[in-house]
């Protein structure tokens, strides 16, 4: 436990900021220590897109029906136009409309 009285609170925030800085810088720094063999580069390449997928999975799992239909709308727009902002906007709109209509 740590007190947030007086200057304590600033110390807590500073420590959090340091942890965040470590996560932002750490990936590049640690990778810099690895030998850049083709296999390492290939690992990074396959890993990079996988981050997106791994972030996405629990969101899709936890989403209600309105949210899932919203994501479906995003996917539809992406297939047709490949424009991310249009896809995201329609996805949010669909989700909101369905929730507004009380259908989920």
């Amino acid at each position: 436990m740590m007190s947030t009285e007086g200057y304590g609170v600033y110390l807590v925030i500073a420590l959090m900021a340091l942890v965040m800085l470590f996560t932002r810088f750490g990936g590049v720094f640690i990778t810099g220590l690895l030998p850049l063999r083709p296999r390492v580069m290939s690992f990074i390449d396959a890993m990079s897109g996988s981050v997106l997928v791994a972030v996405l999975v629990p969101i899709a799992v936890e989403a209600d029906m309105a949210g899932r239909l919203g994501m479906l709308a995003t996917a539809g727009v992406m297939l047709l136009t490949a424009r991310p902002m249009a896809g995201v906007s329609l996805g949010i709109l669909v989700t909101a409309l369905i929730r507004f209509g009380g259908m989920s």
Partner: peptide, 10 residues
């Protein structure tokens, strides 16, 4: 969710 999905599909 929608943003990450759009990025996966781009």
């Amino acid at each position: 969710g929608c943003f990450m999905l759009s990025m996966v599909m781009v």
